[in-house]
Simulated assay, not measured.
Amino acid sequence: MTAKQQARRPGTPGAFSRWMQHRANARMNRKVRRGRGTFMGMDVLILNTVGSRSGQRRETPVAWFADGADDRLIVASGGGSRNPDWFDNLMAHPEQAAIELPGRDPVPVTPHHLDGAERERAWRLIATAQPRIAKYQGKSDREYPVVRLSPR
């Protein structure tokens, strides 16, 4: 193992994996902006955040689930032993968060990290809508954070 590989945080993808993810995200963002916001049977929005360390603008396609008329639920699964970067960015700078729904302009949102009974209710809604997410959660060592995004 090289020194560069050893310096990477555990659970952090390598350069090729990150490159592929950036390309896939950019393609999905283009689709959402053209008004086509679904992937594998799930609705997708673009989450606009600011990097927790870099301060740079970030745009991440994320599956969402309706929670009432205007609120959206998102799950920080990330597929690894740690939360995805977008979750850390969102929590570090919640006042700068916005979402883009398919074919619409960005809307500022307030994120609410759910816990306790509120998270359980939201998780049941999500798992009912997409059982594969519950199956995915079952294979993880951590509880996936659930965030409610409310328009400001």
Score class of each variant (00 low, 15 high):
Met1Arg: 11
Met1Thr: 10
Thr2Pro: 10
Thr2Tyr: 10
Lys4Leu: 14
Lys4Arg: 14
Pro10Thr: 10
Pro10Trp: 14
Thr12Lys: 04
Ala15Phe: 09
Ala15His: 04
Phe16Ser: 00
Arg18Phe: 04
Gln21Ser: 12
His22Thr: 12
Ala24Val: 05
Asn25Gly: 06
Asn25Glu: 10
Arg27Tyr: 08
Met28Tyr: 01
Met28Trp: 02
Asn29Val: 14
Asn29Phe: 11
Gly37Tyr: 12
Phe39Ile: 03
Gly41Cys: 00
Gly41Ser: 09
Asp43Tyr: 01
Ile46Pro: 05
Ile46Thr: 15
Leu47Ile: 05
Asn48Asp: 04
Asn48Glu: 09
Thr49Cys: 11
Thr49Ile: 12
Arg53Lys: 15
Arg53Phe: 06
Gly55Cys: 00
Arg57Asp: 10
Arg58Ala: 06
Val62Arg: 05
Val62Cys: 07
Phe65Trp: 11
Ala69Glu: 09
Ala69Pro: 01
Ala69Phe: 05
Asp70Ala: 09
Ile74Lys: 01
Val75Ser: 02
Ala76Ser: 08
Ala76Thr: 08
Ser77Pro: 11
Ser77Tyr: 14
Gly78Met: 01
Gly79Asp: 06
Arg82Val: 11
Asn83Glu: 15
Asn83Met: 07
Asn89Cys: 04
Met91Pro: 01
Ala92Trp: 12
Glu95Thr: 08
Glu95Phe: 07
Glu95Tyr: 02
Ala97Gln: 02
Ala97Pro: 03
Leu101Lys: 05
Gly103Asn: 10
Gly103Glu: 12
Pro106Phe: 11
Pro106Ala: 06
Val107Cys: 09
Val109Gly: 00
Thr110Pro: 00
His112Leu: 13
His113Phe: 14
Ala117Ile: 02
Glu120Asp: 14
Glu120Arg: 09
Ala122Val: 12
Arg124Lys: 15
Gln130His: 11
Pro131Cys: 02
Ile133Met: 13
Ala134Glu: 11
Ala134Arg: 11
Tyr136Pro: 00
Gln137Glu: 12
Arg148Val: 09
